[in-house]
């Protein structure tokens, strides 16, 4: 099992869903206003992250996420928790 959080993979998933280049993503970018998504895009994003990174994201937490940076933090936190439980 990898011990390091796969941040590159997360950015690739975000970029794929929002039709962007992963290199252009910044922590301050807002998911809706800056990346041009809506609530359905967020659902697709969450499902893709859960499927590809094997983590379960909390709906309530997702509801409050505004920026790419906040999303990275939430996924990292859940990924770390999963790693602890798995070990």
């Amino acid at each position: 099992m990898n011990t390091e959080f796969p941040s590159g993979e997360l950015d690739r998933i975000i970029a794929e869903i929002y039709l962007r280049s992963a290199e252009t993503l910044t922590a301050e970018q807002k998911l809706d206003e800056d990346l041009g998504g809506d609530s359905l895009t967020v659902v697709e994003l969450v499902m893709a992250i859960e499927r590809k990174m094997d983590v379960k994201l909390p709906d309530r937490g997702i509801g409050k996420i505004k920026t790419v940076g906040e999303l990275r933090e939430l996924v990292r936190e859940r990924w770390e928790t999963r790693k602890i439980i798995a070990s």
Partner: peptide
């Protein structure tokens, strides 16, 4: 089915 309906409602709640 593209995902959980509860995610949409949580996003709407905070919109």
């Amino acid at each position: 089915i593209i995902g959980r309906a509860s995610i949409v409602l949580e996003r709407m709640q905070n919109s």
